[in-house]
Structure formats: C-alpha cells, structure tokens
C-alpha cells in the first residue's frame, strides 16, 4: 500500500461551522470527516476525489473522505477541527495546555474501510 508522509493541519471551514452545534447529524460527518490533499499527493496514493483515506500518526488513526484542494501545498493534509481530526493529533501540550492541533506528523494511505460515525468514534474510546 502506498503511503505519503504529511504534516496534519486542523482548522475551521464554514460547513463545519454550520454544523458545529449539530454534531450528531450526517451533515456534520460530511463536513468534518474530510481530508483535503493536493491533487498530486492524491494521485501518488492512487486515490480519487471522494475516496476514503486512512490518516495515521503515532497517536491514533482515523478513516475520512479525501477531497482535492490544490490550494493546499503538497505534503500538507488538512482535516477540519473536530472529532475525526482529534483521533490523530499529538496530545502533548508542551507544558502550556495546548495540544499539537497543527503540524502533527502523519501518514496518509488509501482505505477501503468506511468512515466511523460519531457514535462509533465515541464507542471506540470507551
């Protein structure tokens, strides 16, 4: 299986904001269980726009839908802040309270698994 190394950046999107207080909905999953990648990175992995990818770091892994965003430089994976992104980020706060929400080293690869729902994600931590 092909993999690429990325810096994982999490952050805000309007769609994710619209459903920020509606997180148990399908719309929130569509808005936030997404990984934006550059077209070249996607092609290198053999992933098409809308296909699923596994994003994995030392701290966890998650399956989300891939989306082309060529405004993203190669080597950066962007996942909207929230329940899916936080499966992967580095929880260490460097002694100041703040986990590493932007810049965690991760790898991205093709996945045939389905995207976990919020309920499934939360079952997983129990």
């Amino acid at each position: 299986m092909k993999k690429i190394d990325v810096k994982l950046i999490t952050g805000r999107l309007v769609e994710q904001g619209i459903h920020l207080e509606n997180k148990m909905s399908d719309e929130y999953l569509k808005a936030a269980a997404v990984c934006e990648l550059n077209e070249r990175d996607m092609a290198g992995l053999g992933i098409r726009d809308g296909g699923n990818v596994r994003v994995k770091s030392r701290f966890g892994e998650v399956v989300v839908r891939a989306r082309i965003n060529n405004d993203n430089p190669a080597g950066i994976a962007f996942i909207p802040m929230g329940a899916w992104a936080n499966r992967v980020i580095d929880p260490d706060t460097g002694g100041c309270g703040m986990p590493h929400y932007k810049g965690t080293d991760a790898e991205v690869s093709l996945s045939y698994e389905s995207i976990p729902t919020i309920k499934e994600l939360m079952e997983d931590v129990k």
């Binding site: 997180k23 936080n86 980020i89 929880p91 939360m122 931590v125």
Partner: peptide, 16 residues
C-alpha cells in the same frame, strides 16, 4: 463546549 469532539483522543479516553 464539547471536549468529546475537540480534545485529543488520549484526553477523552480518560474522560470515558
């Protein structure tokens, strides 16, 4: 607020 969604996995594993 919603730490269940916005905290790292390690933190919410302990919350559970």
């Amino acid at each position: 607020s919603d730490p269940g969604a916005h905290f790292p996995k390690k933190s919410i594993e302990f919350m559970a």
